[in-house]
């Protein structure tokens, strides 16, 4: 099939950037979306133009590196699918496809479709962990975990940190990402001691990074390739309210 791509080109952080059209002939329906961009890039290179920069690595939907807004939808039209796992069979001959980077102040554009997502790492560094230095761990079976809790923790832990939730959120909020980690860790017994400091630290880091506030709209879950549920944000809110209430509360509260 033949397609027209309109792609955001921006040579660097200081370039204002613009949409540029490229015809791409002979696209096979078995190609992945990124393979289609590879084909375009091969041609641009030989024509002496700069290829389109985009992040990608695993191409299996797990590393979270890839990400672009395709026709207004983060990761494109297929639900629960990353851009790298999106296949061209979901598009039709003659279609025009708009491709843009994630847009958020906290994710500045590096070049073309590549953005800087360091803010996510900062949120994790502010509390998204369980303190367990190597060597200090008790025997794994010393603490049992209800299967339902372990399974639910897993669901949230499946977040790949891609940033689609931010890209789709009308508020530019990263609450789904933050809540996924809070939920993962607060569902497990190992995560209890740091439960309050974790949520407060992470939410503060989230706000400091310049993400917007959450108004529970739900665009994030709709585009999330891992289907992280909106309920996790409720869990975060509950933990946050409790934590700010007991912030300097006495031990044992």
């Amino acid at each position: 099939m033949n397609l027209t791509l309109r792609i955001w080109r921006q040579s660097g952080p200081d370039d204002p950037g613009r949409m540029v059209s490229y015809p791409v002939p002979d696209v096979s329906p078995d190609m992945s979306f990124l393979e289609m961009l590879d084909v375009l890039n091969e041609r641009l290179t030989l024509d002496g133009e700069e290829p389109v920069a985009f992040d990608h690595d695993c191409r299996e939907g797990i590393c979270g590196a890839c990400g672009m807004v395709i026709n207004g939808v983060a990761h494109g039209p297929e639900r629960a699918t990353t851009a790298c796992q999106l296949h061209m069979r979901h598009f039709s001959d003659g279609q025009t496809i708009d491709i843009e980077p994630w847009r958020a102040r906290a994710f500045p554009v590096v070049k073309d479709l590549v953005v800087d997502r360091t803010a996510f790492d900062q949120i994790i560094a502010a509390g998204g962990y369980i303190t367990a230095p190597a060597g200090s761990a008790p025997e794994a079976h010393a603490q049992l975990v209800r299967k339902s809790d372990a399974d639910a923790a897993f669901e949230s832990a499946a977040c790949i940190g891609c940033g689609a939730c931010v890209a789709a959120c009308p508020n530019g909020s990263a609450m789904l990402f933050t809540a996924a980690k809070v939920t993962h860790l607060s569902l497990l017994p190992q995560g209890q001691p740091e439960r309050s400091t974790r949520v407060v630290g992470m939410v503060d880091a989230h706000d400091a990074a310049g993400f917007g506030g959450c108004t529970n709209i739900g665009e994030c879950t709709a585009v999330c390739p891992k289907g992280i549920p909106l309920t996790s944000i409720g869990r975060l809110n509950r933990d946050y309210l409790k934590a700010t209430r007991d912030r300097d509360g006495a031990p044992g509260t």
């Binding site: 207004g72 939808v73 708009d98 843009e100 847009r103 906290a106 530019g172 310049g210 709209i217």
Partner: peptide, 25 residues
């Protein structure tokens, strides 16, 4: 909240995102 939202996305999308969640929201 609205101001934060605006600040959080200084550059708008060229292709207006379609509503995936709820209109009410």
């Amino acid at each position: 909240l609205a101001r934060r939202a605006r600040a959080a996305r200084p550059v708008r999308y060229a292709h207006r995102p379609k509503v995936q969640g709820s209109y009410a929201a």
